[in-house]
């Protein structure tokens, strides 16, 4: 997913959009190293030393990776995917919500 996420973040860098991760790797030092290597620039919560068994994924009942939630600008959960839904589909859904957010701001 990384290449698509990189381009997504680059494409929407001036839009009301953020990619936020819940990194579920056990070894935090390795994460820093690999983030640099893979040019991962977006921010992630760290799920703790238990990795996929960490507190955030446990509380959220996540049992598959990746799990994605798409949240609108008002903080409502709009879409949820276990597994990658496909780049084009994800792009279209995000773009629609970004448009919605911009229209809401313009209307105020």
């Amino acid at each position: 997913m990384f290449p698509h996420e990189r381009s997504l973040v680059a494409r929407l860098k001036d839009e009301p959009f953020a990619l936020i991760g819940i990194n579920s790797d056990k070894d935090l030092e390795k994460v820093a190293e690999l983030n640099t290597k893979e040019s991962i620039t977006w921010r992630s919560f760290w799920n703790g030393p238990d990795g996929t068994g960490g507190p955030i994924s446990k509380r959220w009942g996540v049992t598959g990776w990746p799990t994605l939630y798409l949240i609108d600008a008002k903080g409502k959960i709009r879409h949820k995917f276990t597994g990658n839904p496909g780049d084009e589909k994800l792009d279209a859904l995000i773009d629609a919500l970004v448009q919605e957010a911009k229209q809401a701001t313009a209307g105020h």
């Binding site: 579920s24 994605l68 600008a73």
Partner: peptide, 11 residues
Amino acid sequence: GKVVLLDFWGH
């Protein structure tokens, strides 16, 4: 205020 894609991921 922003659309957020929340991604549970790992390396």
